[in-house]
Design a protein around this nucleic acid. Sequence first.
DNA 1: GTTGTTGTTGAACGATCGTATAACAACCGC
DNA 2: GCGGTTGTTATACGATCGTTCAACAACAAC
Lengths: 193, 193
Amino acid sequence: MTIRQRPDERRQGLLEATARCLAEKGAAGVSVRAICTQAGVSPGLIGHYFGGVAEAIAATYRWTGDSVGQALDAAVAQAGPAPRARLLAYLTASFRPPIASPELLGTWVAFWSLTRNDPAIAAIHAEIYGQFRHGIEALIAAAHPALADTRLPAVALTALIDGLWLELSLGHAPYSAAEAEALVELWLDALLR
Amino acid sequence: MTIRQRPDERRQGLLEATARCLAEKGAAGVSVRAICTQAGVSPGLIGHYFGGVAEAIAATYRWTGDSVGQALDAAVAQAGPAPRARLLAYLTASFRPPIASPELLGTWVAFWSLTRNDPAIAAIHAEIYGQFRHGIEALIAAAHPALADTRLPAVALTALIDGLWLELSLGHAPYSAAEAEALVELWLDALLR
DNA sequence: GTTGTTGTTGAACGATCGTATAACAACCGC
DNA sequence: GCGGTTGTTATACGATCGTTCAACAACAAC
């Protein structure tokens, strides 16, 4: 039997266990029993903290998205005051710790595949990506105040980052994280020249 | 009861049913019964044409990949002799019929999520993406004979296309297929300038 | 210490999963 | 036509799925 934990710690443990299951077994392999075994907990407990496994996965997506958002903000804060440096830090943070971990990449790909078929996941996805794009647009506007439209550059940079991230996640990508960063910087200059 | 079909037609029907299931229900929702219902066939038949559902999915990935490859080649053939036009046709074909259909996009995202966890799918993925990159590299070399390295540009273009494709697939993307094409052309010029 | 609330377990339920197989239908060679 | 091969169905099996719930353990209030 497991020792009783504080409720928020237990809930957090279940979120992390869900993320680990999604990374290891994919969207098709995650299950209540797998999650609870991963968390070292009895299968009945998922119903106590979440309404069901679907809600647990949704909460995990929200938590993962928030974590990434905080890491992005931290990278920007560390970049100093120069607008271009702040924008570049935001864009390249996806290829550095703590975001560029194999586990997080795997979890994220699983969320992509769930987004198409689960409306609740799709809503969270829209929120997360909306925030991400909004962050890029704000930093672009700060770096290039004269620019008329920030939407398309934000779309373009998001797409390149996601594409590079995807191939890094699927393994055997014929490039390094450092090369990915360099490509993002090149793309940024091409878009805002 | 279903009328008997020619074996290759029946097998092809099962491949298409599998693809439709992956698009509609995702990697987590596909099942023998769903596939066979979609194909209008009894569940036992999947074992007759494939060793099991895993093999059916793998065969579907191979068939889908071949179809995309043929569509890409057709787009190049239609583009005429100019090297740059041929390269651009190869790159933008992903955003035009028959490749840019909602069903194909959905199926493809499901394959991405399976790639991380199923070695057989991963092998097929490596083959398909190897061919795609090889195609880009050959067209780049033809268009820019003096270029030393074609690997990184091919990586970069593949990533942008996948990223744009992903967001188009997940719905509510804040851009059109035409804008995606224009971005790919811009990226091409930035890489090979 | 007693009582009541909350966390947790482990087993049970019905549903669905993938696969195997016996029976039947359709086709082919003769 | 007839026998043998192949396609197809329907069902059955064991495993696993998500969820529920009675029972028990841990803690808080008093």
